[in-house]
Design a protein around this nucleic acid. Sequence first.
DNA 1: GTAGGACTTCAAGTGAACTTTATGTCAAGG
DNA 2: CCTTGACATAAAGTTCACTTGAAGTCCTAC
Lengths: 136, 136
Amino acid sequence: MQNFGIGEIARLAGVATSTIRYYEGIGLLPPSKRVSGKRRYGATILEKLRVIRMAQRAGFSIAEIHTLLHEFPANTPPSSRWQTLATNKIPEIDAQIQHLQKMKWLLEQTLACQCATLEACAGENDAPCDNSPSAP
Amino acid sequence: MQNFGIGEIARLAGVATSTIRYYEGIGLLPPSKRVSGKRRYGATILEKLRVIRMAQRAGFSIAEIHTLLHEFPANTPPSSRWQTLATNKIPEIDAQIQHLQKMKWLLEQTLACQCATLEACAGENDAPCDNSPSAP
DNA sequence: GTAGGACTTCAAGTGAACTTTATGTCAAGG
DNA sequence: CCTTGACATAAAGTTCACTTGAAGTCCTAC
């Protein structure tokens, strides 16, 4: 069953081989079986990579995914793991959506503007929100 | 009129002095007048900094702000400048909003899930969208 | 005259998530 | 026997928008 080389896994999972090695290096994936020095994988690695990618797409950082995968007591059911992280993440996502909607509103305002100078634009249209990426 | 030191401007504008020097270094702000080697500013710098901050909050990168400020023909009215960039930016923002909404949906799905393993979760809930930050 | 504070420059560091590079090993094919 | 290609490691590079550090200048106050 342990039949795939890293290149094949990378192609099947749609990631770079360097990414897989990197994940292993930071402990996101467990050290793989080796055959004469080379990594050999079974199909389960694909599911693990899919979990990682799904979590990334859900907005989790690598550090958070590490928590999700490895920092719960061994018998914690996945639903609890997700819930712990997701209940914190959803308000973050809501805040980001709000911020983007204010950005969009601001741009639509300025599209309609006829200010004589950029400075005048800035003066008339206040900052869209306090969720600026640069805000503390 | 050219009465403010960089520290005072930084306090008034709510940015760090290093940020102002950095902006000048990359050409986002013009080289300032010097008095015995030290930067001296008039009040217009505050408006320039406000334009920059507004543009950042509207989602523009430093490079895009540079375009906005310095890479149009000198007589281009500000409304045209904004429009050129904003019409490209708004669809980007829409895409980001969509992506975040799908992330939220995905998290809500997994909150309700009872999968036995994380891998099962990943298998049942497909990737939220093709707008992944890691997508090409 | 010296201590303090604000300023100067230039170079290097930060963080996230990888990618790229340099160098080396290994088995298979011609 | 030799080349090719996939793999290995370790270290350094990438991007963005700054920040931090080191070393020095300048003016004011005591």
